[in-house]
Structure formats: structure tokens, C-alpha cells
Nucleic acid binder design. Structure first.
Lengths: 188, 188
DNA sequence: CTTTTGTAAGTAAATATTCACATACATGCA
DNA sequence: TGCATGTATGTGAATATTTACTTACAAAAG
């Protein structure tokens, strides 16, 4: 699974075939089928790992006692750091088109993104309730914009051939968003 | 080209093969090669059409004499309406992964998205300069968030099996964003 | 001795692309 | 009008390659 993620990171999802994977691992294709009944199962296992890793990281950040603005900044930083180190994860999470034909994978990606969005949404909700953020923001909308920003950043970063630092740029964006929605006279 | 777009709209980018396309058009595969030297050329021709259509529409909206907020709303509405009617266009524009291996197509998609973002950015810039939007927004950041929101909306819409109306939901999001950045005491 | 894990060599289907050949049709010429 | 010629457009069959996956058999390990 690690080698598979590496292939996707380096050469994109299309380069991940049972043939290239077996070559990279150093076994025959048949050997792969001893461990994964199909290529889809392999991908779904990887997606499940990503799911667990991501949600555990977000909920860890969420459990810390600190302003909600700080939580959001840390989540974006963590997430972009992961994408920076293993771009494959962005490829897989945002490749809904690629799996349009496969119902199971579509459902899985859907639930992953949905879960992440709900986490973010709750943070905005909490910040709105304790007066940290302005009262007229809509947590559901802002959280989707938050994720959309991450996605667009990653896409631009890739299209620019990784010429700038993803996490740093992400911090700038996050600060800008927070500036707009933060209540000026808020004190913890 | 129209039939190709339809295939992508209905069954995704992976379903677009010279075989399926020729079957849909009602000719043989060889006939397709009388008009397009390769599959990539076909896709690039389609992308170029999308490019022209999109930018002409945006600049038409931009030339109207009206508040910048209204321009943004109209652009989002137009764009989501196009995506609603021909989801393929979203597939193609946002399929950077798919074309990771093809340099020409990557460059083309890059320039399309870049151009669109610059248009949006200019509108935010104008709104900032004439006091319509708050002074501390960053046009480059906001425009990227604007596009990210559109993209995320389209993705959610697809993953939800088109269960809600895309343009209407887009309007709600747009109004929310504008509420946050609009200067309250602004009068044209 | 049984289960796990591997190999080598296949499979059928799909892929983009090409080729020799056929038809349709407009234009130019007698 | 009647005929030749060139070009655009199509056919049908074949190409080599790649794809995910399978099967018969062997080694290894507990």
C-alpha cells in the first residue's frame, strides 16, 4: 500500500497499475492478488487508511483547549503538510471523477469528505457560538469554502509544478479568511 | 465534439474512448481520425471551446454597468448553470489529475483556470477600490476561495447524485460570501 | 502435512491508432 | 450535357500495447 501511494504521488493515479505496482514492490502481479482480491480493494484499503489518519488528526486538534481560530489554522497546516509530503493523498481524495463508475469507491470518498467537512463545520459553529466569529457567518457554507480553498490551493500548487511552499501559502490564506470573520473585540 | 461532451457528462471522462464516441456518433473509429489527429487533439479542441465560451461570458458580465457584487453573483449563476446542463465541462476543467501525463493538456487547463481566476480577481479588486467591499480583503485570495467554493459545490452536487439544484445553492453561498465582505454603508 | 505466499505464463477485453480501399461530390474541361 | 480528376469523408479490418485478473504449480514455513 505504501508503494502504491508513492506511485500515485510521483506519477499520478493513472500510473498505478497492478503491473507497475508489482514491479515497484519487487514481486509478480499474482502475488499482489494474494493480499488484495482486486485493484479496487487495494484502493479502498488505502482510502480507509487515509480516512482514519485524517479524522484522528483533526479530532486530536479539536480536543485541545484553544481558540477555534487556532484550531482551524492547525488543521489546514496539518492537512497541507500531508499533501505536500504525499501528494497522492490529494489525488485520491479529490479524484471523484476517476471513480465515477465504481459505486463503492464513490461512496467511500463521499463519506470521507463529508466527515471532514462536518468536523470543520463544528469548529466554525463553536466559534460562532462563543462570540469568536461574527454572528452572521454560516458554518456549513464557510466550512465548504474552507475545504474548497484547500483543494484549489493544492491544484494550483500542482499546476505550478510545486514551485512554492504549500503549507506556508495555506497559512496566509487561513489568516485572511479568519481576519474577515473574526469578531474584533473578542477576548477568550 | 458535442457527442463527446455528452458522453463525459453522462458517464465520466473514463467512458470517453474513440470506440464509445464512434458508436455514439454513428461512424467508425477511423472516421474520427479524419477530423482529429488524436484523442488528445479532440479533448484540447473541446477545452478551447470551453475556454472561449467561459471567458466571453465572464467578460460580457464584467462590461455591464452594475455593482461588483452583482457581477460576481451573475458569474457564479452562469457558471453553475453551465455545469448543471453539461456536467462534462466541470469534469474536464477540474480533471487535472487525469491529464497529469499529458503536458499540453495540463498547460491548457492551467491557463484556462488562471485566466478565469484573474477575471474574478479584478472584480474583487474593483469592488475593493470603490469602497464596495471591505478594505482588508485580498483579491487574489478571495478569488481563489470563490473558485474553490464553486468547485466544492459541484463536487458535492455530483456526489449527492444531483439531488439539489446547483445554481440555487450557489446563489445562497455567494450571498453569504458577499455579506461577509461587503461594506455596510456603501452606496453607489 | 497443511497453509501461506510466491512464480511463470497465461487469459480476454479494451485501448489508441493505422491502413488499404470505397464512396460521394464538387470542380474543371471537352 | 458528359466525363475525368481531386479531395473530403467514410469503412472494415488489423495493429501493438496495456489492462485487470487467473491458473497450475512450487517453495517455504509453522
Amino acid at each position: 500500500m505504501q508503494e502504491a501511494v508513492e506511485i500515485v504521488s510521483e506519477k499520478g493515479l493513472n500510473a498505478l497499475t497492478m503491473s507497475t505496482l508489482s514491479a515497484k514492490v519487487g514481486v509478480t502481479e499474482g502475488a499482489l492478488y494474494r493480499h488484495f482480491s482486486s485493484k479496487n480493494e487495494l484502493i479502498m484499503d488505502i482510502l480507509n487508511d487515509i480516512f482514519l489518519e485524517t479524522t484522528s488528526q483533526i479530532s486530536e486538534v479539536n480536543s485541545r483547549k484553544q481558540p477555534n481560530a487556532a484550531k482551524l489554522q492547525q488543521i489546514m497546516e496539518n492537512q497541507l503538510f500531508i499533501f505536500k509530503q504525499r501528494p497522492a493523498i490529494a489525488n485520491l481524495l479529490f479524484a471523484e471523477e476517476y471513480f465515477l463508475t465504481n459505486h463503492d469507491i464513490k461512496i467511500l470518498i463521499y463519506s470521507i469528505i463529508n466527515t471532514i467537512q462536518l468536523y470543520i463545520q463544528e469548529i466554525f459553529e463553536a466559534g460562532k457560538n462563543n462570540g469568536e466569529f461574527k454572528n452572521h457567518i454560516h458554518p456549513r457554507h464557510i466550512s465548504l469554502m474552507f475545504l474548497g480553498t484547500i483543494r484549489m490551493l493544492v491544484m494550483n500548487w500542482k499546476l505550478s509544478n510545486y514551485q512554492w511552499d504549500l503549507p506556508i501559502e495555506g497559512q496566509v490564506f487561513c489568516q485572511n479568511l479568519l481576519e474577515i470573520i473574526e469578531e474584533k473585540n473578542f477576548n477568550q
